[in-house]
Each structure stands twice: as structure tokens, then as C-alpha cells.
Write a protein that binds this DNA or RNA. Structure first.
Length: 877
RNA sequence: GGGAGCUUAGCUCAGUUGGUUUAGAGCAUCUGCCUUACAAGCAGAGGGUCACAGGUUCGACUCCUGUAGCUCCCACCA
């Protein structure tokens, strides 16, 4: 009986149960077979990470796609895993050790790595556990980690392959140095931010002149100590007279040459530029061009070293402050101006990047980029939304070499081994390296202890770019069954901020090592923001805890909230009220279920006419929506899909369909209808399941008797059968009539339980009893009469047929007249418009016949409507 | 400094190659209802000169040009 079931749906009681059920029955697992494959690899979250709203969005979308594909009959795999995230993880481990009183500097590499692995085992992969709460249908048996032995081997293989192809080289270059993490980072890992800073004007004395100076402008006065030239524009007359002379660096009194190059903007500052080749990329280039000395004044940690001569050991920012009084004292400071400039920050540590000259490993990208660019441009890979094609193309066309070495311990170590003669060999391991070295240099009589492996590890992305290949062992065993079956993957769901880091490089890797793109479609999600459009961040504290959210609204509710407002590529303005809407929807489903379950069945009752009509209509509506859903899935319009399913269930199924078929209070329902309702309900749950997996599974199981191993997640999405547009049309007209009557009830304050009569002013031969029955049921109409006499009661017009509700004593004639006059005004205005078009000869002559016909139809309809209104008005008056 | 995108109801967004009753949805708002599944609900209502200015066209939310505002990406101006 209804009363026994709680009126509120409780997701907590349901969700864990079904996730366990799916796991117990191994329903997420996939093995290659004869069915078509649908595969997605998760963008591996950092092993250090905890679930945030961005993951929620990203993984909800993946789960919807995967569950949809599974129910469409694909052999579906969603491969989960984590990324070792070398800088972030190493920083976490270093901090963790510090808390235990252990300093990384006191540890050997092996000791540190032992702690790091321990840490990883203990704290790593929290996200993957949290994703289960969300309902993620990942194939957990396949969980991978980018530093697993097999994946690491693939990384080494790829490095060696690139090295042998001549695409990896080692060299001294200006790199982005992170003084906190003590490592180089790639260009992509530098984030430029605008800062309020100062522009310092400093004058340099001309050597041999008693009162001649050149004033330069700089934002970094501390680097004066590393200056090795001053540069001016060759055509700048102000400075022409100093040609051939030297300037004296303030404070350290070092003479430096004056050079002239067109690089300098004459209009900026004073038109004179100090050159510090060791600490600025542009200065470095000029230094190369003019063969300048390079004085490195910084230690790796950003403090000044002995080369600076003064302020040795002082941090660069402290030094910037400290040098000002020194310049003042020496009479070299001219003025200080406010200035806004862009400063590069390390993506991982948020430390100001220091350009630094150092020996690093690089990967040449041009030849890898070419086919990868083509793959996106020619449609082998589709981007959703498409606009990211432009961004991608621009980067690919201007690609630079990739600095792949990092001065860290946590990561894949560079497989290069140095020999006593300062040469090196590249090999899979120490033994192989020794063999190669011996062959190359037999005269050296090398032993294992002569070889020393490079200390650096590789950029994290150097393993991530292989992810779609390496999770299926496609690098080491390119012909294996799994890679052949699951690769290329079907779709990649990711955020646009890693399009260069990851997406572009995966495409290159896929083409380079497997000759095929890694995925067919890339769906870029937006950024999750709060309602004030601010990015969610820890500092702002505007990011809700996803786990708490799921406890509050249910995973289904939160999924609903995430999905409902996240068209591809658009930012998602997260608002808890969306989750509330999701929870309310769950509750609606729950109560619809309670209603249906509470009915008593009777096999002896005939199916009423209104019910028969409703069932036919509902089936058609479902088909109509199914067709739209399928189309939307192709275009990754998931929020649209959820919305139309939401409306199908709430408006059509609950508010309309169930209200029609509902038996009178405490009366039984006929068995035929009941069976049909349960079938329809079941279908709706199947359609909704990819979006809200838990409640749909719960209701699907309770609606009908099921085997203990059956699951909605393996139920096929219904096939689309024929749609009857005429029926759908007539039904929606019927709903309009219902609305008219309800409005009249509302206006006249007539309770639903008070039965009404309905008069229809048309020929009885056009009667449609099946629809009249529906109107009667929903509006509590006790009698429908066809008439052609004077209008009696409150009237309305629908599809140019007049209806009225006879209501003696409740009619306000002047009110009725006013309403009709308004209608008339609208209809006449409308007709005016149509006539204006039709009287335009050029329209009639040029527009397609079909468009003109539509206008003619509009005209006759409007005229008929006007006629009816006028007639009615005259009767009333 | 380049490039891309956006601007439609209070908010968030749809609007397919220009034409289907002088623009649609969800939420929010307002009105009336504790009606026998659901007040996390039911029924109904109001709300937009489609950023602005031109142009093309028989016809423009839709195409073109310009203007303004916002967002993102790229770039070594000290």
C-alpha cells in the first residue's frame, strides 16, 4: 500500500547498494569480443588529488557517454587511472617528510623514492575511490598508474625511439626555472600574470667621461649586477655619440660595451636597454648575437651568488628592494615609476619563474606536429566545440621544442648513461647501456660502475601523452588484441586548458607510435565557476565539497545539477539550487513510482477510452524524444538531452499521462493499462539511466520482477518505432483545450471537484470522442454537448472552434467583452502583418510557393478567427 | 600587440542551410490551491523593440560591415 513507502526519496539508502551490486556482478568490466567497441580513457587525475567540482563535471560526462554506449549495445570500456604528477607529488612528499623532521637533502635518491612510493600507496588515488560515489562505471580491474612498470617501460621505449630518430637532443638553453621546485619547466607550465610593479630608471656612467650618463629603464634592478652590455637603437641620435665607448655598471663598477640593435624600441623608457644575458631570454639572444659575456648571478633557489659581488645570499626579491638605497647612494637612481607588466609564474608552485641557462633535454616537435595538425583539420578528429580547432592550429603551427627534463626524483628517469669520456649512451637499462657503450668504445674497457645514469626525470606529460596507447600496452606490444580492439578510443573528455599539454601531444604520440589518432572526438568541458562567475578555488573557498554535496542531494541529484547547465565548452556556473532541482526530480520519480505501485489491479475492468488515448500518445511522445536524444548524443548536447528527458518525465508522464490514467480514489485499475504503464515507466527509466544511474536502477528493479543479476545498465535503449505526427498534434491541441478550461476554473475560482459542462460549437460529425474523454477526465467535465445556438457561458476559441463552459451567475459580461476585444485586437494586428506581406508583389513572386501558401493559410485562419470573435461579441452585446 | 568567441526574458541558455501563426526552455517571480503520488508538490499567469548603428534581401535573431561591452587563447617590449 502507498502509505508504507516514504514520500521522500532517500538516495543514501539506495546508491551504495547499487554500486556494490554493479561491482559484485563485474558489470563495468570489458574484454574484447565480437561486438563493436566503445572506449574512453579517463584523463588521469593527479595521484595527489582529491575530488573537486571540475572532476565531478568531467567524470559525470564520461559516465553518461559510457553508460549510453553500453546500453546501445557497444562493448564499452572506461579505463581509470592516475597520473604521477612529478612536481606536485614530489612537493607533497617533501612537505610530508618535513613534517616528520626529514629533510630531502639528507636522503639518497633511493631513500626518497621509497618514501614517495609509501606515500603514494597510502594517500594516492583518493579520487578514484571518490568517483565510485558518483557512480562512475569505470573498469576498475584496468586501473593504471603512469609509473606502473609496464607504462614506465613504454615511456623509456618512446624516449629511446625518439632519440634514435634524432628528435631528442641535449643542450644548454635558456629555460624556465622554478626556484622553489628547483627544476626546469616547459613553456606551457608558465602562467603569465599581470602585476603592479615599478619601472626603475638607472643611469650608467660613460667610461672616460666625467659627467656623461646613459639612463636605462628596468623592472629588475637586481639584475644590474649581471649586466654585460647596454643596447640602443642604431638610428637613435641621442646615443649615437657614444659609439665605441663603454659604460660602467653601478655598484660593481664593471665596464661593459655599448651595442646597437634594432631590437630596442626607441619609444620605450629611455630607449636604452640593459643587457643581462644570463637572466632574460631576449638579452640571451642579443648576447649570442654580439658575443657578450654571460654572468649568472643567481643560485638555483633564487638567491644571489658570488658573481653578484654584493648582496650575496640574498633572495632576488629582497635584493630588488635592497639595491635601491645602494643605487641612490651612488647617485645612479634617476626615478621610479609605477608600471604594469606580465610576470611568469610556475603552474605548479606559483613561484616566479626565473629564466635560466641550463643543460636540459629537448624534444623536437615540428615533424611530430605536422600530421597531428592535419588530423584535426581534416576531420579525423572532431573537436566539440569546434572553436578549439583554431587554438589548436595556431599552437601547432608555431610549435617549439619541448623541454622534457626535470630536476626531480619522482618520475621516469632519463635513460641516458654517461661514460667517463663525457659521452653518453641511451638504453633501456644499465646492462643494455653497458653493452652499447662497450661496442661503441671497446678501448675503454668499461665496467658497470663506469656508467652513470642521468639524474633527471622526464616531464610528467611525457608519460601522459602515451596514455591512450599505454593503458592497452600499445607501445610495447602494438599488435596485441586489446589495442587492436579498443584503439582508437571513442571520445576524450577534458578541459581546454590542457589542450597543448595533453590533447595535442596525445594526437602526436598516437600517430607516431600507432599510425592512428588516439580518439575520434574530443569534448571540451567548461570551467566550473560559482554563480558570480569566479573560478572555483581553495583560496576563495567557493568550491563545495563534492562528497558533502552527494550526501545532501544524492549522486543522481548532483549529476543532474552538473549536467543540466553545461553545454560543451561553456563554463558551468555552479549553483547548489541545480542539485536541489536534481534531488526534486528524483523525488518526483519516486512519487510517481509510489502512485503506480499503490494501485490495485483488476482483470475484469475494461480499459477506458481516455486511457487508451493516453497510452497511445505517451508511446509516441517517447519515440519522439528518443529520436531527439539520439541526435543530441551525436552532437554531445548532453544538457539538452537531460532537459528533454526531464520534461518528458515530469510534464508529459507525470503531469499529464499519469493524471489521465489514474483511477478514481480507491478504485482499482484495469490490468491492461497497468501493464502498459509499467512498461512505459520502465522505458523512461532506461532512457534516463545514463544521467541518473542509481534511482533508475532502483525503480527499474522494483517496477517488475527481475533476476538477481539483471541490471538496467545492460538493458537496451528502446528502438525508435514509427511516430504518428497527426496523433501528437491532436493531442497537443487537446492539452490546449484543457489549459483553457483550467484557466477558467482558476479565474472563476471553481474547485476541481466541482464538475462542469462543456459546449462545443461545431458540427457533431467532427466529434473526436477519444480526445473528449481525455478532456473530461482531466477537467472533471460531466457532460460535453455539441451545439450551434447562442454562446452560453465563458467561452474560448481553440483552433478556430468555439467552446464554452456554461456558468450561470458567474459570468461578467463586460469582462468577457473586454477579453474578446483584446483577442480581436491581436488577431487583427496579426492579420495586418500577413496582409502586408501578401500584398507585396515581390514577396508573392519571389518567395517559394510553400512559404506563400503558409502566409495564405495564416490569412484565412486569422480571418476566420476574427469572424468568430466578432460574431461572439455581437451576441454578447 | 595579434587571434578566437560571446552579447536573445531577472538568471542560465536553445534557436539547425534566412520564411511554420508578430521569439522558446529551465530556474526565478506573481496568483490560487495542504485536490485522495509528490508543498522537494499541483494549476494558472506575467515577462524579450533578439547589445547598438548601418547594409544585403520580397523577408533578418539568423548573412555582411562598423561601434560598444565581456570572455578566452597566443606573443620576449625592458
Amino acid at each position: 500500500m502507498v502509505n508504507e513507502i516514504n514520500t521522500k526519496y532517500d538516495p543514501m539508502a539506495v546508491e551504495d547498494k547499487w554500486y556494490d551490486f554493479w561491482m559484485r556482478n563485474n558489470m563495468f568490466h570489458s574484454e574484447p569480443d565480437s561486438r563493436p567497441a566503445y572506449s574512453i580513457v579517463i584523463p588521469p587525475p593527479n595521484v595527489t588529488g582529491v575530488l573537486h567540482m571540475g572532476h565531478m563535471l568531467n567524470n559525470t560526462i564520461q559516465d553518461v557517454l559510457v553508460r549510453n554506449a553500453r546500453m546501445k549495445g557497444f562493448n564499452t570500456v572506461w579505463v581509470p587511472g592516475t597520473d604521477h604528477a612529478s612536481i606536485a607529488t614530489e612537493a607533497k612528499v617533501v612537505n610530508y617528510l618535513k613534517e616528520q623532521g626529514i629533510d630531502k637533502k639528507d636522503l639518497s635518491r633511493d631513500e626518497f623514492l621509497k618514501y614517495a612510493w609509501e606515500w603514494k600507496e597510502k594517500y594516492g588515488g583518493i579520487i578514484l575511490k571518490q568517483l565510485r560515489k558518483l557512480g562512475a562505471s569505470c573498469d576498475w580491474e584496468r586501473t593504471k598508474f603512469t609509473m606502473d612498470a609496464d607504462l614506465s617501460e613504454a615511456v623509456t621505449d618512446v624516449f629511446i625511439d625518439l632519440y634514435n630518430k634524432g628528435l631528442i637532443y641535449r643542450g644548454v638553453r635558456m629555460v624556465n626555472w622554478d626556484p622553489k621546485a628547483l627544476t626546469a619547466v616547459s613553456d606551457e607550465e608558465v602562467i603569465y600574470k599581470e602585476l603592479q610593479s615599478k619601472l626603475y630608471y638607472v643611469r650608467y656612467k660613460i667610461e672616460g667621461e666625467c659627467d656623461e650618463f646613459i639612463t636605462i629603464a628596468t623592472t629588475r634592478p637586481e639584475t644590474i649586477l649581471g649586466d654585460t652590455a647596454i643596447c640602443m637603437h642604431p638610428d637613435d641620435e641621442r646615443y649615437a655619440k657614444y659609439k665605441g665607448k663603454r659604460a660602467i655598471v653601478p655598484i660593481v663598477n664593471r665596464p661593459i660595451p655599448l651595442i646597437y640593435d634594432e631590437y630596442v624600441e626607441r619609444e620605450f623608457g629611455t630607449g636604452a636597454l640593459k643587457i643581462t644575458p644570463a637572466h632574460d631570454i631576449n638579452d640571451y639572444n642579443l648576447g649570442n648575437k654580439y658575443n657578450l659575456n654571460s654572468i649568472n648571478i643567481f643560485n638555483d633557489n633564487g638567491t644571489l651568488n658570488e658573481n653578484a659581488k654584493v648582496l650575496v645570499g640574498v633572495d632576488r626579491f629582497k635584493a630588488r628592494e635592497a639595491i635601491i638605497p645602494m643605487l641612490e647612494e651612488s647617485g645612479n637612481l634617476v626615478k621610479i615609476e609605477d608600471y604594469t607588466n606580465k610576470v611568469g609564474f610556475s603552474e605548479r608552485t606559483n613561484e616566479v619563474i626565473e629564466p635560466k641557462l641550463s643543460m636540459q633535454w629537448f624534444c623536437k616537435m615540428e615533424s611530430l606536429a605536422k600530421p597531428a595538425l592535419a588530423a584535426v583539420m581534416n576531420g579525423d578528429i572532431n573537436f566539440y566545440p569546434e572553436k578549439f580547432k583554431n587554438t589548436y592550429a595556431h599552437w601547432m603551427e608555431n610549435i617549439k621544442d619541448w623541454c622534457i627534463s626535470r630536476q626531480l626524483w619522482w618520475g621516469h628517469r632519463i635513460p641516458a648513461y654517461y661514460l667517463p669520456n663525457r659521452k653518453f649512451v641511451v638504453a633501456r637499462n644499465a646492462d643494455e647501456a653497458l653493452n652499447i657503450a662497450r661496442q661503441k668504445f671497446p678501448e675503454l674497457n668499461l665496467t658497470a660502475s663506469d656508467l652513470k645514469q642521468d639524474e633527471d626525470v622526464m616531464d610528467t606529460w611525457f608519460s601522459s601523452w602515451l596514455w591512450p596507447l599505454s593503458v592497452f600496452d600499445g607501445i610495447r606490444n602494438p599488435d596485441n588484441k586489446e589495442i587492436q580492439y579498443y584503439y582508437p578510443t571513442s571520445a576524450l573528455i577534458t578541459a581546454p586548458d590542457i589542450i597543448f599539454f595533453w590533447v595535442a601531444r596525445m594526437i602526436m604520440a598516437g600517430l607516431e607510435w600507432h599510425g592512428q589518432v588516439p580518439f575520434k572526438d574530443v569534448y571540451f568541458t567548461g570551467t566550473v565557476r560559482d554563480k558570480l562567475h569566479r573560478k572555483m578555488s581553495k583560496q576563495l573557498g567557493n568550491s563545495p565539497d563534492p562528497i558533502l554535496l552527494m550526501e545532501q542531494y544524492g549522486a543522481d541529484g548532483v549529476r543532474f545539477g552538473m549536467l543540466l547547465s553545461s553545454p560543451a565548452g561553456n563554463d558551468l556556473l555552479f549553483d547548489e539550487s541545480l542539485c536541489e532541482q536534481g534531488r526534486n526530480f528524483s523525488n518526483k520519480l519516486w512519487n510517481a513510482f509510489r502512485l503506480v505501485k499503490g494501485w490495485e489491479k483488476d482483470t475484469n475492468i475494461e480499459q477506458p477510452l481516455h486511457t487508451k488515448t493516453a497510452v497511445k500518445w505517451m508511446k509516441n511522445r517517447i519515440n519522439e524524444v528518443l529520436a531527439e536524444v539520439e541526435e543530441n548524443f551525436k552532437r554531445y548536447r548532453l544538457s539538452e538531452n537531460l532537459m528533454i528527458i526531464y520534461k518528458l518525465i515530469w510534464d508529459d508522464f507525470c503531469s499529464c499521462f499519469l493524471e489521465i490514467v489514474k483511477p478514481a480514489y480507491l478504485k482499482p485499475i484495469d490490468q491492461k493499462t497497468y501493464t502498459e504503464i509499467v512498461d512505459i515507466f520502465e522505458n523512461l527509466m532506461v532512457i534516463l539511466h545514463p544521467f541518473m544511474p542509481f534511482i533508475t536502477e532502483e525503480l527499474w528493479h522494483t517496477l517488475k520482477e527481475r533476476n538477481s543479476e539483471e541490471s538496467i545498465m545492460l538493458a537496451p535503449i528502446p528502438e525508435i518505432s514509427d511516430i504518428d505526427p497527426k496523433l501528437l498534434n491532436e493531442f497537443s491541441e487537446t492539452r490546449k483545450i484543457i489549459e483553457h478550461i483550467r484557466r477558467i476554473r482558476n479565474e472563476k475560482n471553481i474547485a476541481q471537484k466541482h464538475p462542469l459542462k462543456l459546449f462545443i460549437y461545431t458540427n457533431p460529425s467532427s466529434e473526436k470522442p477519444e480526445y473528449n474523454a481525455v478532456v473530461a477526465k482531466l477537467c472533471n467535465i460531466e457532460n460535453i454537448e455539441y451545439r450551434n445556438d447562442n454562446i452560453d457561458g465563458v467561452s474560448f476559441i481553440e483552433n478556430n472552434i468555439q467552446y464554452s463552459i456554461p456558468l450561470t451567475g458567474l459570468i461578467d459580461t463586460s469582462e468577457e467583452i473586454k477579453k474578446l476585444e483584446n483577442d480581436l485586437k491581436y488577431a487583427e494586428g496579426f492579420l495586418q502583418n500577413v496582409l502586408k506581406k501578401l500584398s507585396n508583389e515581390r514577396f508573392v513572386n519571389n518567395a517559394p510557393q510553400q512559404v506563400v501558401d503558409v502566409e495564405r493559410k495564416k490569412q484565412s485562419d486569422a480571418e476566420e478567427k476574427i469572424r468568430i470573435i466578432k460574431e461572439q461579441l455581437s451576441k454578447l452585446k
